[in-house]
Write a protein that binds this DNA or RNA. Structure first.
Length: 715
DNA sequence: AGCACGCCGACT
DNA sequence: GTCGGCGTGCTC
């Protein structure tokens, strides 16, 4: 067909094209402030509320607003707020062919609202189709999506893509089960171990909205405690939502909830269910058949009816951070939900993030903790092996493992399984002096040196190569790769105890549980199986991986990984022992020895406040090709107290290495600037960045920049 | 992103 | 006159 416009191409049809042009012109000139809905075809429209406000499902920022469409009479009944619709969306004057308006293509959208009139001065196009009469987007979910989009400088459509699963007709056709009446309030159970535990449950059960940061005692009881919190909320007649970092944690919470409440009262939303099952579960929640939800991060948007409690377990795990734009974090989304719905909030874990500590420090949440005596009685004995011990330890030089560690493993294996935590494969081997074990650092920027090929060294921060390294501490010239050393150590341990089975758990193959019989269990952080009756001992060989990491959170992360392993070990009174190979002077090591992750987080928080780092200040990262970033920074109208750090060159992505969102394509040199604002100016920062990005896209201006609120790897 | 509009120079 | 080049701006 011709690419001509309507005036010339529409000859043989209902409305003569000249007339169309005339209508259009008169509409333009008249500048009617409140247009009565008219369509080009003049089809019959709904008598009541003939205008549909539609959110067009395109993630583009400059289209992040509503568009009004006319509601044809035949779609009147189905075109209710919240339903999925299809509309024509395209540019400029619309072609007319066989009497139909054929603007751009058909695209998906959500009907947000029905109105009596539109404030759009032009004639409205008609809704093309109501995809299904099932309302999937109510005002509450829309409000949440709006808040998340604003918080993260993203578009509403992008957030809705995360919040509303794709439709599945078969799942939609099946009726959801009838809702069950509220269960009775549960007994406090092991919540008795926490000073405010029973009171917290009671508040939930009696319609209260307590907010707590929960320092969970080590051991397996947490899942049952979480289940009791959910059950108490259900007992009040309200709904509850808990988000956990991975499938294994969800499975534990699922088992605990089923044991406490039986089947049918909760839904499990995880990514590994198929699309039909997933949508069916989601619909059961949305329709109010199921009042409680547990799941991984996608569940953070679950449309739970009359939400009474939101809970996050282990918020330091980075799987809580969504990979898709605008990359919201489950903790932050649930904070927004707690504020919007005025519901209870529970942030729990064995460890403690700086963000959690901040919630307590600001008084927004209360600590939910056990007494020191209880903590000491529940935690294993922790011992350290630092450089000085290693240097003094002749046996360690020969056998690559300190005497203390051997003793702990040997003694542990007499009573049960022993866990050996080794760094994850794929960590770039960090180098250290073979003689004195001082980490090998870049002479220009003090970044960690990484092994490239056989002999090549390169700085992990500035990327500069290094030849002719020598140790500034002891003058040695030989290097060893610490991480590889740890793995080999684990293998050697296996050979040293030939009568004991060796099991491994890691990324490829994750073990869920191991029996309580003597065995060496070698695992990467986060993949540790639970041992029946707890491990007799654990050996943590991950200490070096922490030292070289440039990240602001490296201390917190290391402590979290160690605690995650050590919490699976029997309590000290039952003989549980942990040996960590790391400098005892380091702050996270001391926190592990004292079993005080909350105290560690409070000290980190104070330091971040002093340095003006998140979460005390709000930060955003802007990355892209150098000239593009510079141009963006010139154009953006930042809030008055914003401060730009950098830009500095980003490390080049090595070919073959997985590329994270926001990282440059292999071989390209990108810059990154950090923008920071003082507390309370986060919203203004997000708005400014979003506006600049939108203006940039609308101008069709060349390369896009990456904008990321709360960047993970800074420092 | 598309895609149509419009204002300017060469051509039947 | 009118066809078509690309620069600009809009999408209900």
């Amino acid at each position: 067909m011709s690419s001509e416009n309507g005036q010339r191409d529409g000859g043989a049809q209902d409305a003569p094209p000249e007339q169309l042009a005339l209508i259009r012109d008169s509409v333009r000139k008249a500048k009617v402030p409140r247009a009565k809905p008219r369509t080009w075809r003049g089809a019959a429209l709904a008598k009541d509320l003939p205008v549909a406000r539609v959110l067009v499902d395109k993630g583009v920022l400059h289209l992040d607003r509503y568009f009004d469409y006319a509601v044809p009479e035949e779609l009147d009944a189905d075109a209710q707020p919240g339903v999925r619709v299809r509309v024509r969306f395209g540019a400029g004057r619309h072609r007319v062919r066989e009497g139909r308006r054929e603007g751009g293509g058909l695209i998906d959208g959500f009907l947000v609202e029905r109105l009596a009139e539109s404030d759009y001065p032009g004639p409205l196009a008609a809704l093309a189709q109501v995809v299904s009469p099932e309302p999937v987007l109510d005002g509450e979910l829309l409000g949440l999506a709006r808040a998340v989009a604003d918080r993260y400088a993203g578009s509403l459509a992008d957030v809705l893509q995360l919040a509303v699963p794709p439709r599945n007709a078969r799942a939609e056709k099946r009726p959801s089960p009838a809702p069950l009446p509220p269960p009775p309030a549960p007994l406090p159970g092991s919540w008795e171990r926490y000073e405010q535990g029973p009171a917290f449950l009671e508040a939930l059960a009696s319609n209260g909205a307590p907010r707590a940061v929960w320092s969970a005692l080590p051991g397996p009881e947490w899942s049952e405690e979480l289940a009791r919190a959910v059950a108490a909320t259900l007992a009040s007649g309200r709904g509850a939502l808990a988000v956990l970092p991975d499938g294994r944690a969800v499975a534990r919470a699922d088992a605990a909830l089923t044991a406490l409440l039986g089947e049918g009262r909760h839904a499990v939303l995880t990514a590994d269910a198929g699309p039909e099952k997933r949508y069916a579960q989601w619909l059961a929640v949305r329709r109010g058949s199921v009042r409680a939800v547990i799941g991984t991060r996608a569940a953070m948007f679950a449309p739970v009816r009359d939400l009474g409690l939101v809970a996050v377990w282990d918020d330091g795990d980075d799987s809580h951070s969504e990979q898709h734009a605008p990359q919201p974090h489950a903790r932050e989304v649930l904070l927004l939900r707690a504020a919007q719905d005025r519901c209870a909030f529970l942030l729990g874990g064995w460890s403690c993030t700086v963000e959690a500590a901040q919630l307590v420090e600001t008084g927004w949440a209360r600590p939910l903790v056990a007494t020191r005596e209880r903590v000491r009685a529940a935690a294993p004995l922790v011992r350290t092996v630092g450089d000085q011990d290693l240097a003094r330890d002749e046996a360690a030089r020969a056998a690559r493992l300190p005497t203390l560690a051997w003793q702990a493993v040997r003694e542990g294996l007499r009573h049960g399984p022993v866990l050996v935590q080794v760094p994850r494969r794929g960590y770039v081997p960090r180098m250290a002096c073979a003689g004195c074990r001082a980490p090998a650092r870049c002479r220009h920027c003090s970044g960690p040196l990484e092994a490239q090929g056989s002999d090549d060294l390169r700085c992990g921060w500035c990327g500069r190569g290094e030849s002719g390294w020598h140790c500034p501490e002891c003058g040695g010239f030989r290097l060893r790769a610490q991480v590889v050393g740890a793995r080999r150590t684990a293998e050697e341990l296996g050979r040293a105890f030939p009568a004991v089975p060796v099991r491994t758990s890691g990324r490829e193959h994750v073990l869920d549980t191991v029996p309580g019989t003597p065995a060496l269990v070698v695992s990467t952080p986060g993949a540790e199986p639970v041992a029946e009756g707890g491990y007799a001992a654990a050996l943590l060989l991950d200490g070096w991986a922490m030292v070289g990491r440039p990240d602001l959170r490296s201390g917190e992360d290391a402590l979290r990984r160690w605690i995650g392993a050590a919490a699976l070990v029997r309590p000290q009174p039952a003989g549980g022992t942990v040996v960590v190979v790391a400098e005892p002077t380091l702050r996270p090591v001391q926190a592990l020895v004292r079993w005080d992750p909350a105290g560690h987080a409070v000290r980190e928080l104070a330091e971040r406040a002093e340095l003006g780092f998140p979460p005390v200040s709000r930060m955003a990262a802007v990355s892209g090709p150098g000239e593009t970033v510079a141009g963006f920074l010139r154009a953006v109208d930042l809030p008055a107290r914003a401060e730009i750090l950098g830009p500095v060159p980003l490390p080049v992505t090595a070919a073959g290495r997985p590329r994270r969102p926001g990282a440059p394509p292999p071989g390209e040199q990108w810059d990154r600037a950090l923008v920071r604002v003082p507390p309370g100016h986060g919203a203004a920062l997000a708005t400014a960045l979003k506006a600049a990005q939108a203006a940039r896209m609308a101008k069709g201006g060349g390369d896009p920049v990456w904008v990321r609120i709360d960047p993970l790897d800074i420092g």
